[in-house]
Design a protein around this nucleic acid. Structure first.
Lengths: 198, 198
DNA sequence: GCAGAAACAGTCATCCTTGACTGTTAGCGG
DNA sequence: CCGCTAACAGTCAAGGATGACTGTTTCTGC
């Protein structure tokens, strides 16, 4: 009787639970890692039945592959606004700060987690590889947008991949090392670009 | 009767099987990753009984912690000789090549695997953190040995952590990306140091 | 308003891993 | 040579994860 009050189409119902499941999966990956992301745990967090979970994602593998896309998409939504703010400020330092946001977000932790798991899972590896290729292009465009004045500098092409790799490495080290060292790294990256570009 | 031919002390027997177990664990980590490194798989590869395994390492956690030390130690034995050769050649380029050997060795893959797992395992994290602190000092000394002529250069302190972080990041990316890009990276790192130091 | 399909609910068998446990053998001190 | 202890061997119970399976509800097309 009361249930009749809420009336949704099949597509709406389906999309809603699917979204809940994916959101729970992402949370799970970020908080307890790949190993901790069991289908049971996802099911608990999403508050769906086992049937619902298995209906949308017949296997754990498919769930994780879907999570890859979800993670990268969510990442875009985090980075986008930050870029806009940084463009108004402008300059090398603000650009580094924004880039670091991308690599340091909780979502990046989730991506990292799947990245590690991808080594033994061909399906997952393929999904990650594809998204990574896209991400590389986007990061490149992001940099061009952040530092329009330096795009034509002879050292621009030299510095970018190194900075990006360094951020990758630093993000990874963050698992073990203290936050304190992060500030030093940020300063170092800024100094490097000033050294190369100014 | 024939068994009497081989006579070893308790300590020798013990050390031998312990070494076999640890070697198998390292192999396992490198080949099938942290998740694939089950105690059963290690036991199979080391060709020891369950009793032997559990005798030396009462729990899987202790086994993995021991593997951390083993991995870093093995890494030293790989890098050491390479450094000696590089010192004879000398120069920025040879130094980069040696550093990359350290980050690109199969052992580094194993370390990476445990590094990822360390996020949800306090015991493991502590072990990794400790070894990482040592490794940082050693890498630093290694660089000083590789590039004695540049140690006092004003940009030396700036460049080192960035190169090291970049190698970390690149090593990680290697899981997904092709080897082809590695050559470009190596060239980029060399060029950066030439740019900064020459 | 009714057949059919999609979305969801809940249970269960199977498999795998872990570490506890008991039994056996090889070296060591006296 | 003998008792003892460390090193090793092999089995087993418990727990947890996965996905198959059956039942139920909600929507949609006609």
């Amino acid at each position: 009787m009361t249930t009749a009050a809420i009336r949704r189409t099949q597509a709406e119902r389906s999309a809603a639970t699917r979204a809940r499941i994916l959101a729970a999966t992402v949370d799970c990956l970020v908080e307890v890692g790949h190993a901790g992301t069991t289908t049971l745990e996802v099911q608990r967090r999403a508050e769906v039945s086992r049937g619902a979970l298995l209906h949308h994602f017949p296997s754990r593998a498919e769930l994780l592959v879907a999570a890859v896309y979800q993670l990268f998409e969510a990442q875009r939504e985090v980075v986008g606004p930050a870029v806009l703010r940084a463009r108004e400020v402008g300059g090398i330092d603000a650009g580094i700060d924004v880039l670091w946001i991308a690599f340091n977000s909780p979502l990046a932790v989730g991506i990292d987690e799947l990245w590690a798991a991808a080594r033994d899972d061909a399906e997952l590896r393929e999904a990650i590889a594809k998204q990574d290729r896209n991400a590389r292009v986007e990061i490149r465009n992001l940099c061009d947008a952040l530092w329009p004045g330096y795009v034509d500098h002879p050292n621009y092409e030299l510095a970018l991949p190194i900075i990006i790799d360094a951020m990758h490495g630093a993000a990874r080290a963050r698992v073990v090392r203290s936050d304190r060292t992060t500030a030093k790294r940020l300063a170092g990256w800024k100094q490097l670009l000033h050294e190369l570009w100014d």
